[in-house]
């Protein structure tokens, strides 16, 4: 469900339901594409299994109907010259046989019965031999048809296995194409990330080189003051409160010049804070008798450490001011005046 991107404050049920319906359609399409893969596989399997059309038709041939049962061999009986006069009716048959035998000269008068009797007797022997042959052929036919059935079962099984194999191969080839595209996409992203990492590394190196340059610049800034001004502004945004306190402390400790110098280096918001500061924290008039002057470093722009120290000192100073108001506080970062 990760493709549903939901913003809790901007939920649109209609849009979500559109997504739901699109997903259902996609599922249906997936089912349809599965069916298509199946069809393709069937076609390929048919080609494999039926190069000339013979095997496929064999595989698709419905199971053969059982051969009709062999005709029972003709009833075998002895045929002689009297056979045609006999009857099967018991005593009446005997009487009939007698009458027919009695009248047989009359019959011979019309046609010669001998060749007919001979032919029939030969035919009887032929029939017996044919019956034995048929019996043997029938047994062979049964045997071969059972073998054929078994063979057909194996063929069907082979056909199914081949079909499944081809279907799987087709599916795998489709998936492989998809995976190839995914790999290409991942490779592109990896490439991008590598470039990004290299850019960040070079940025980090530049940044690590910068403090050294800053330190050098700070040393130079004590002489020309150009670079420290930029750093002061950055530091001032982060530590405006502290800078203000430092400014105030410096003002208290050193008098108007130091305070002015510190204020000039403080950021605008610090200056604004100073502007609304109570009168007792403002710098004394320049006409005030000279107090112990703060060293130059108190009014100069400070590095992080040196800026923090006066700020802490300012806190201490405020406490000291509450405890003993007349005593001028000393910034701890500043050297003590000579006593």
């Amino acid at each position: 469900m990760s493709e549903f991107s939901v913003q809790s404050e901007g939920i649109d049920v209609e849009r979500i339901m559109e997504q739901v319906r699109a997903r259902i359609r996609a599922n249906r399409d997936e089912d349809a594409s599965n069916a298509q893969v199946r069809e393709q596989a069937d076609a390929k399997a048919a080609q494999l299994l039926n190069p000339g059309g013979a095997r496929s038709s064999h595989a698709a041939r419905p199971p053969q109907e059982k051969a009709p049962p062999a005709p029972s061999p003709a009833e075998s009986f002895e045929f002689d010259q009297d056979t045609i006069y006999r009857s099967s009716r018991g005593a009446v048959g005997g009487l009939l046989y007698g009458i027919r035998k009695l009248l047989s000269p009359l019959l011979k008068f019309f046609f010669n019965i001998q060749p007919v009797a001979h032919a029939l007797s030969v035919q009887t022997r032929i029939n017996a031999r044919q019956a034995a042959f048929d019996d043997r052929v029938g047994r062979l036919f049964d045997m071969s048809s059972s073998r054929l059935e078994a063979r057909e079962e194996i063929d069907k099984l082979n056909h199914r296995v081949m079909n499944d194999l081809v279907a799987e191969m087709t599916r795998l080839s489709v998936e492989m194409k998809n995976h190839r595209m995914v790999v290409e996409s991942v490779a592109a992203r990896l490439d991008f990330f590598e470039r990004q990492a290299r850019a960040k590394e070079s940025g980090a190196e530049a940044r690590t080189r910068l403090p050294a340059a800053d330190a050098a610049g700070a040393a130079e800034g004590q002489t020309d003051g150009a670079e420290p001004t930029r750093r002061r502004r950055r530091r001032g945004r982060r530590r405006s409160g502290r800078t203000t306190a430092a400014t105030e402390a410096a003002a208290e400790a050193t008098g108007g010049e130091a305070a002015e110098a510190a204020e000039s280096s403080a950021p605008p918001e610090a200056a604004a804070a100073d502007a609304v500061a109570p009168p007792e924290t403002t710098a004394p008039d320049s006409t005030t008798p000279p107090e112990p002057t703060a060293p130059e470093s108190a009014a100069k722009p400070r590095d992080d450490d040196s800026a923090a120290a006066p700020a802490e000192a300012a806190g201490e100073t405020a406490t000291a001011r509450e405890d003993a108001q007349p005593e001028p506080a000393q910034p701890s970062g500043a050297p003590e005046p000579e006593r």
Binding site: M1, V6, S8, I16, M17, V20
Partner: peptide, 26 residues
């Protein structure tokens, strides 16, 4: 959410069961 067929029922149920942010937002 709403459904008019089994497919929509199943899909919306799965969506609601798996997406806590959606449930919270709704």
């Amino acid at each position: 959410l709403y459904y008019a067929s089994y497919e929509e029922f199943a899909e919306t149920m799965r969506l609601l069961e798996s997406n806590r942010r959606l449930r919270t937002g709704l």
